[in-house]
Amino acid sequence: MDLKKLAGQAGQFLTRAVQYTEEKIGSAEKTELDGHFESLSHQADSARHWTEKMLVGAESVLIPNPGNRVEDMIFEKIEKRRPNRLSNLEYFGLDMVQAGNDFGSGTAYGSALLKVGGAEQRLGMVEREFISNAVQGFIQPLRKFLETEMKTITKEKRLLETKRLDLDACKSRLRKARSLDGQSSQKDAVDPKVLVAQAEADLRKAQADFDRQAEITKLLLEGVRSSQAAHLRYLNELVEAQTLYYDQSHKVMVELQKELASVPFNPSAVGAFDNSVPVFQINDEEIDLQSPSSP
């Protein structure tokens, strides 16, 4: 371990902490960035904020189950394929199909259950395809934007703030060194002119480091606006996937209505069952509750 380097880093951290504290209490000056830079920074923060909200909203709509969302994210991190799980519509349709088989395809109700169950399963497959397309064309690109471009910008902005604290700390040291210059130096004390020269050299280096980091950060911030063209393409892909989903779903339902129209339905049988008179049997004798002769 390089103790000298470690001590130097600790000293820099302390200097920055002191500078930050003095700025907060108003006893130290702070270098302000220009208005254009601040505008770019605000736009980047806004882009990150709304992209995060849209991602959360899209995921909650496409994958309502939070557990499934976490599972899918884990599989993406380890670069494995997402689990090919059935949708709720497919489970619903499967129950209908099983019930229809149990009641018998020869009965009207059983036949209808088989037809509706099959349609629900097809709807579930259409829904799964839509979710897959939306995730690949909209969610994944936006998440990549947050995890690459925005994460890099956040890192560089943090580094710029560090360089800014170093710069302002150097300015403070130079002001103190100049205030000592011209005063009578004590014996064995460091010549104030030497302190001023050293402070000026430190300031020049800190200013160069700050300017270079500000330019790097500014270039990254300017790239955020240009990324909106790609985001517009992702949005169009989402709309196309959703349009296809509703179109296919509508076709499935229209076809189902035609199939159900061929299923025989006898309203009189239902009415006869609904209007049936309650009958009790006592000692092998049936008693009609609505008969006038009933006790």
Rank of each mutant, 00 (worst) to 15 (best):
Glu127Lys: 05
Cys170Tyr: 05
Arg143Asp: 10
Leu289Asp: 06
Ser293Tyr: 04
Glu222Asp: 03
Asn266Cys: 10
Leu113Phe: 02
Gly57Cys: 11
Met1Asp: 08
Leu235Glu: 06
Gly11Glu: 07
Lys176Val: 10
Glu286Cys: 01
Ser27Ile: 15
Ser179Thr: 06
Ala7Gln: 13
Val263Lys: 09
Lys258Phe: 10
Gly35Leu: 05
Ala47Asp: 05
Ala206Asn: 08
Thr148Lys: 06
Lys218Ile: 03
Arg178Ser: 04
Val190Asp: 03
Thr51Ser: 14
Ser268Val: 11
Ser39Arg: 00
Gln186Pro: 02
Glu38Tyr: 04
Glu79Tyr: 07
Thr21Asn: 11
Leu174Gly: 12
Glu259Ser: 03
Ser226Tyr: 02
Lys171Gly: 04
Ile139Phe: 04
Gly118Cys: 01
Thr148Asp: 06
Ser41Arg: 10
Leu221Ser: 02
Arg164Val: 12
Asp2Pro: 04
Lys155Asp: 07
Lys205Ala: 02
Thr107Tyr: 11
Pro278Arg: 11
Ile63Tyr: 06
Met1His: 12
Leu114Arg: 15
Val116Gln: 01
Gly35Phe: 00
Gly100Pro: 12
Glu240Ile: 13
Glu52Ser: 15
Asn133Asp: 14
Gly26Tyr: 06
Val254Ala: 15
Gly11Met: 08
Tyr234His: 12
Asn84His: 05
Leu235Val: 13
Val270Lys: 01
Gly35Arg: 03
Asp45Glu: 05
Val135Asn: 06
Arg69His: 08
Arg16Pro: 02
Val56Ala: 08
Ala112Glu: 03
Met125Pro: 03
